[in-house]
Amino acid sequence: MYAQMVKTDAARIKGLDEMDPQERVFQQRIDTGQKIEPKEWMPEAYRKTLIRQISQHAHSEIVGQLPEGNWITRAPTLERKAILLAKVQDEAGHGLYLYCAAETLGISRDQMYEQLHSGKAKYSSIFNYPTLSWADIGAIGWLVDGAAIMNQVPLQRCSYGPYARAMVRICKEESFHQRQGFDILAKMVRGTPAQKEMVQDALDRWWWPSLMMFGPSDDASVHSAQSMAWKIKQNSNDELRQKFVDQTVPQAEYLGLTVPDPDLKWNEEKGGYDFGEPDWSEFFEVIAGNGPCNAERLGARRKAWGDGTWFRDGLTAHAEKVAARRAKSVAAE
């Protein structure tokens, strides 16, 4: 997902009776569906885990601007150009909301950037794949945003107030993102044979990385169990992946496309699709920094930040000058 394999520092899940009174009250509040707000007492591990998860989510939005941004200047019509630009701009906005939510936990945005730029913080594996044709822009909207929504909708109910509220705003704004992607593809598959081929090629390349977005099975993961106990994660990775496949396969059929999975078939008994296992070795390579675009994505972010230092400093200096002038003129009165 946008936040993949977030560590919690937990060795195992504590029972209520093993907790000290403060922690027990905290856990009971979560269990009864109350929101935790900034500056309220929280276990250090909860705070750290949230910072990891929210900042990873924020970094994914910011790095996620790049693959789609790659096609803004080549969008095929004025309307498509405006829609894509608005969408990528929304992603910057979502990154901003999320950084702000993380800032309420006692970390600054610049610190989070530093963690991203140094490679210490992760972002979603999906954004390390290249956008090679216009159909990829459709595929990202349809598959990648589609997968993200699966995760983000339940996060609106997560236990940490600022994160939940940011997700409400994000989900509201994102409602058009998946549709615009599907719309691009729907138009193309009804176009020329070359366009239809482009769409199939995009699905072939984006299908498996999209399934990997949910992360490896975490049914046995103590981190995942801890995150669920804290209500900062609501569903298991496999649950979400199944839901995604069930929702997406009929849409692919509607578009007249072939999902590139020979093992894909409807399972009447479970009322869902059976499907093949993604190549997890590829996933771990990408996470380790060896995806097709890791170096370029991180390089672009570092460059934007480094090239912008003089700009940010210039504005700070001006604001300080003006404040000093005002103070002086007040003192002179």
Partner: peptide
């Protein structure tokens, strides 16, 4: 201007 999208010196400026 659209060439800057994703590359501006601050998020607020990007937007």
């Amino acid at each position: 201007l659209s060439e800057w999208c994703g590359h501006a010196p601050a998020l607020e400026e990007d937007i």
